[in-house]
């Protein structure tokens, strides 16, 4: 964390404005580029349908998903005192994916069953990883990453078992969705993720200073007035909800929670009061741009957005692991 000075405050504010501008530019690019290029000035009726019913919900959902995952990552990293903690790598996304699939297979008619099961799945996976990573001597990086691997592979095998129950046509769309796919975006999906990401970011930001103290040490934080158990519960629950809702809407878009908070910390330091809200904005930018690439790269066909984010994220993970 850097020392706070008026200059830093101005700098942070300026950084926030820059992020907002970038978000605007990303939106512009994402809306007008695609397999059907749209003009700024005039739209045919068919193009209007593409813009308002297909592309705009997709771009907006992408922004919400990116913000959710980045904020969840930033929160988990501070809580676990580990820059490698990431929803996708810890198996939280897979928990949510399994929940979504269960809802899809067994409660296909009920629309809200999917996000509910996804959130439950994410929560259970979070608890499992946390319990496995904890030891008498505390929690180290290797133990946490290993626990994440175990939970991820276990849940993956369950997902594979479930997919064998599906017919061939559904299977393809599912495989796509598992890798992170925004093409199924709907307006109702967007509204739900939007409300959740706003509430989640506010809730985690309200715990930001407590998280700063917990990054120094949980014992210390307790002595200086932090309700450690309560903060842990809030962060775990909020992160699980954010991941669950976004996975239900768009599958497992990996590595967003790793890349984005890391870049933000490099820029503004590790004060969570800045890292959490800025991660939300930068996460939105990142996924919107990645999805634009996914749509345009091999147009008219599409790539899953999760493949793009993983291409950038995996090398970064190796870099961070070596630095640790």
């Amino acid at each position: 964390m850097k020392a706070r000075s008026p200059r830093l405050k101005v700098k942070s504010l300026r950084f926030g404005v820059v992020l907002l501008m970038f978000l605007g530019i990303a939106f512009g690019l994402a809306v007008f580029f695609g397999s059907e290029r749209l003009s700024f000035l005039e739209l045919t009726d068919a193009q209007a349908v593409i813009l308002f019913d297909i592309r705009l919900p997709r771009v907006l959902l992408g922004a919400c998903v990116g913000a959710s995952l980045a904020v969840a990552g930033a929160g988990l990293q501070s809580l676990l005192r580990n820059p490698l903690a990431e929803p996708y790598l810890l198996g939280v996304s897979n928990g949510a994916a399994l929940g979504t699939m269960l809802a899809f297979v067994f409660f296909a008619q009920i629309e809200f069953a999917r996000p509910v099961f996804a959130v439950l799945g994410a929560g259970l996976a979070t608890i499992a990883v946390y319990q496995m990573a904890r030891s008498r001597t505390g929690m180290n990086v290797e133990r946490l990453v290993l626990s994440g691997v175990i939970v991820t592979t276990f849940l993956s095998s369950l997902i594979v078992l479930l997919t064998s129950l599906l017919d061939a046509a559904k299977l393809r769309s599912f495989t796509f969705w598992l890798l992170g796919d925004l093409s199924q975006a709907t307006k109702s999906g967007f509204y739900l993720t939007f409300v959740c990401v706003i509430l989640g970011t506010i809730l985690l930001s309200s715990q930001a200073r407590a998280l700063n103290l917990m990054m120094i040490g949980e014992r210390d934080a307790f002595d200086f007035g932090v309700e450690v158990g309560k903060v842990r519960l809030i962060v775990f629950a909020t992160a699980s909800a954010l991941v669950g809702i976004s996975v239900a809407a768009s599958g497992s878009v990996g590595y967003v929670g790793l890349i984005v908070p890391h870049l933000i910390r490099l820029t503004v330091g590790s004060d969570n009061r800045l890292v959490i809200p800025f991660s939300a904005m930068a996460g939105a930018i990142f996924v919107v741009l990645a999805d634009t690439v996914a749509r345009v790269a091999i147009a008219p066909r599409e790539l899953p957005v999760g493949a793009i984010t993983a291409l950038i994220g995996a090398p970064m993970f190796i870099y961070l692991l070596r630095k640790n």
């Binding site: 309200s206 700063n212 200086f224 009061r273």
Partner: peptide
Amino acid sequence: ETKFPVSVLEFVLAGRFSHGTAFG
């Protein structure tokens, strides 16, 4: 515990946490 990189001023300000406001 001081494993995490934190500045001296930030560390001392932790002592003011209990007097803090919402959002801190």
